[in-house]
Every structure is written in C-alpha cells, then in structure tokens.
Nucleic acid binder design. Structure first.
Length: 459
RNA sequence: GGCCCGGUGGCAGAGUGGCCAUGCAGAGGACUGCAAAUCCUCGUACGUCGGUUCGAUUCCGGCCCGGGCCUCCA
C-alpha cells in the first residue's frame, strides 16, 4: 500500500518516499500570534496532526515543526491598540492557541519555533542571498530580486509578468523589480527591531520560515504544509529564498501539501472579512472532539462549509460511535483496521475513513459473540486513535456539558433514577414516566436496558 | 482579466467506466410497559449540452454556476 500525498508542485497525487526512510521531516506554517485562533486556522492544525499521527505509525522517527509568527505589523498594531507590550500580546495569544489546539486533540509538534528566536538565522540567509546576487540592500531594506531566479513561480504556477500585471499594490521606489519582496525592513524607534548589517530593523514575513526550516530540519526536507492561501506568495517566496541560498535543494521540501479553506456563509472564513468563529467560543458549544470530527468529515483539499447544523451532525455521528463502544468495558486499542489505514494512506481520505468507522460500529452493534465484540471494539478504538478520536470514556462523552453550566448534578440524577426504578418495579409507570420527563426537561435522557438504566446529557 | 479548484440523493460527503459508499434528517417494521439506544427495510443522486464507448456520474470538449489565489491571509 504505502502513503500517497497530493503534491501541489505537480498538482497530482504521488507515492510518498522520504529522503531518509528512518526520519521523516515536516514543516507546517502556523499562525500569527495577535488574536484568538478561528476555526479556519484550526483546519491545517487538525489536518497535519492527522498526517503526523499517520507518519509516526509508518516511519520510525518523525520531526514535526509548526512555527509561530511573533513579529509582524498586525501584532504591533494590536499591541498598541490594547495598550500592552508586544511580548505580552504574543505570550497570551500563544498560550491560548496552544490550549485551544490541545482541546481539538492535536498533538504538540516536536518544535514550535518563533520568528523572534531566529533573527540571527534570518540575517544569515539575507546575507547569503546578497552574496549570491539574489538579493540587494536598498534604503535600509533587503529585497529578494525575483528575476534572479529563473525558476521562480513553479509552485504557484505563475510567472513574474503575470504577477506584476495582477499586482494590487503600489510598487515601492526602492525595488529593482516590481515583483521583488522584502527580506528585511527598517524599524522606527517605536517598532520592534534588531541590529543588522543594514541598520536596526525586522524581518519580512517569508524569510522566517526559511530560517527556521533550515535550522530545525535541514536545507531540504520531506513535507511542507499549510493552507491553500499560502501557496502564493508565502510558499513561493520561501522556495525562492531557501533554494537560492542553498543551491541544489530545489524544491526545498519534496512534497508541498495544502489544505482547502474553511467557508462560513459560502465565503472563506477570515479575520479581514469578519465572518469567523473562534475555536474558543465554539468550545463552549460543543466538545473539541466534535469540532475535530466535523473537520475530518470533509476531505482536506476540498472547501468545507462550517455551519451549526454541521456541528450538530458531527456530534450525532460521534454519539453513534461512542454508543457502540459504551458498555464494552474500556477496550484497549487493538489492530488498526486495514480499511481505515488504506483510506488514510490514500491522500488522507478522512471522510472514507470515517465511513469505515461507522461500518465497524454497525458490525459491533450486531455482533453477539463476546470475543467478536471485543475484537471489533478494539479495532474501532485503534482506528479512532490514529484519527485522534474516540479515546475518552463513552460515559464522559455522553455527559459532556459546557463549562460553567448549571444543570442537574450527577448525584441528583442518580437519585431520580433510583426512585424511577422503584416505581417501575411497582409497575407504577405513570410515576416512572413523570420522573423520566422531568429529567428530560433538564436535558437528561435515560436509556433502559437489561443491564440497568443509563443516562446521557442531550446535545 | 490571468492561474487554479469544484458542481453527487432533503442535507453533509466519499467514490467508481458496468454491482454497496457512509453519516444526519425522514417513513415503515422488530425490540421495549412506553421511550431511548440498537437492528431491518425504503426513497428513479451524480450541473448542462455534445463526443468516445457495447456501456459514462466516472474519460474528452463546449457551456452555465460556485469557490480560491493574484504580495494581510490557515
């Protein structure tokens, strides 16, 4: 079988073959730390978390780097507006980000480097590029000279002329070519800055990733990921910088993998359009696992529409899977079902993998032989594990409630169930149903079975 | 305008040159004191017009519609 990934570079699915079969290296562009992450920002986190889990299963060692941009003009503006320091803003935002992504059951990457920790590496690359004639200093800026790289534009499929023709911004006078982009720019006294051969300044956007990737993963590595909207200019420019600085390393990463956008109201969810929901607020409506499941019900390269109905459906879908697992004790993950592995290996076909999860759940619900049930429950658990799902106690899943919710306590519920049981034994069904209705009004649903009565909180 | 993606049943969403996706919602049935959960059954799905083919939702072309990128973007 083996892993196949869609490579943006060639716009087709390819067999994945790492440079070093004993050590797979992956770099994914993270976020700019100036505000709460919205659910669209979480998509690449979940998608590449899944890829990370899969790679860890398939290869002996995986290094996963997800960077954080902590130097950026949006950060400066926001810090000033909030009346706080840049450091305060980025630290707070980052802590929140890590908590939110953890709630979505994303594993921590091996490294989460920050741009400000890599200033020397950034300056070094800028110097190398100047030395090779791929960049030049002008008025305190350092610019990458796009015409110096004949291959520029391969990833995004555009050439310099198209770019210039479609450009929506004014061309700065110090640029030799309209397509040239900034590696380093001067800082005013009220802006953060570092000393450099070109005066006090700060890095441009793209170069931080080139610097962090080379330091943590080497000059060329296996997978570079991020959102579709980063293909141009961000990833195109990363390739330009890295490959000109370190000749013979094109295309920097062998597999360029991009996730599709999350839509909200049929349009791309984005801060600038204002049509976003933060992960933090969504976590008050639903468990993080439901958000994750929802994200995985769509293929990562397709656009995914985010709706309240969709989130409800995601919860219902997980309800069904946890229901199948409930009352089976706590089955340990056993063998990963072939169908699920095959779906994931085929360019992360998570919708297909989830459909297999449901097929296993159906078999499990139908099985009567205890050994067969144990086997299927173990398979379901193992399949869930690689997808970052189904690892909690089913009882806990069904009893989830928003933080700070003031609904009926568990002891009180148990007491009412006890009273209802006595009524039922006395065949006083009117009283038994009255108690059940009373609980239902409080969002508690009862299920009677041969083993006794269990309860859930309605979603 | 240029360059890329898409258009599948009420909804979400895979996939395939000829046979089943899967889930949610809905209808009927089994089970149940009644429910809930579960199981079974059901609904003439593949934007449009042509072409290739014994056969196309699947391949090719035109058209229509939607989305993304074109130096803030995950």
């Amino acid at each position: 079988m083996g892993l196949k990934l869609h490579n943006t570079l060639w716009r087709k699915k390819e067999e994945f073959s790492p440079l070093d079969p004993n050590h797979v290296r992956m770099y994914v562009c993270g976020v700019t730390a100036y505000d709460f992450a919205h659910i669209g920002n979480a998509r690449p986190v979940i998608v590449f978390d899944l890829l990370y889990r899969l790679l860890k299963r398939l290869y002996p060692r995986v290094t996963y780097v997800r960077n954080v941009t902590d130097i950026d003009d949006k950060i400066n503006d926001r810090a000033r507006a909030n009346g706080e320091t840049i450091r305060q803003l980025t630290e707070r935002t980052l802590a929140q980000y890590q908590a939110d992504m953890g709630a979505l059951l994303a594993l921590s990457p091996d490294y989460e480097p920050r741009a400000t920790e890599h200033i020397p590496g950034i300056i070094r690359i800028a110097e190398i590029l100047i030395g090779k004639g791929n960049a030049y200093a002008a008025e305190g800026h350092v610019l990458f000279n796009v015409p110096s790289m004949p291959d520029y534009g391969r990833l995004s499929g555009r050439n310099r002329d198209e770019m210039v023709a479609g450009a929506r911004v004014d061309v700065a006078p110090y640029k030799r070519d309209p397509a040239d982009f900034v590696l380093w720019k001067p800082s005013r006294d009220d802006q953060p800055g570092w000393d450099s051969p070109w005066g006090r300044g700060r890095p441009g956007w793209h170069i931080e990733c080139s610097a962090m990737a080379v330091q943590l993963l080497g000059e060329s590595f296996d997978i570079h990921g991020g959102g579709l909207d980063l293909i141009f200019p961000h990833h195109e420019n990363e390739i330009a910088q890295s490959c000109c600085a370190f000749p013979g390393t094109w295309p920097m990463a062998r597999y360029w993998v991009h996730n599709g956008m999350l839509n909200f109201g049929s349009e791309k969810m984005s801060k600038s359009l204002g049509n976003f929901r933060t992960v933090n607020e969504l976590l008050r409506d639903a468990p993080g696992e439901a958000l994750r499941y929802y994200m995985l019900t769509g293929h990562y390269r397709q656009p995914l529409e985010w709706t309240n109905e969709g989130l409800k459906e995601a919860r219902s879908g997980l309800d069904r899977l946890y229901q199948a697992l409930q009352g089976r004790g706590a089955p340990a993950a056993s063998e990963l079902p072939f169908t699920v592995l095959a779906a994931l290996e085929d360019d992360l076909n998570t919708p297909l993998a989830i459909s297999h999860l449901h097929e296993i759940a159906t078999e499990l619900n139908k099985a009567s032989d205890p050994a067969e049930k144990r086997r299927l429950a173990g398979e379901l658990k193992a399949a869930g594990e690689i997808m970052g799902l189904l690892q909690q106690d089913p009882v806990a899943w069904f009893r989830w409630q928003p933080a700070g919710s003031e609904s009926l306590g568990e002891a009180e519920i148990a007491g009412m169930i006890q009273r209802r049981l006595l009524a039922r034994k006395a065949r006083n069904f009117a009283e038994a149903d009255r108690i059940r209705d009373e609980l239902k009004a409080q969002g508690v649903v009862l299920e009677d079975s041969a083993q006794g009565t269990t309860w859930k909180r309605a979603s």
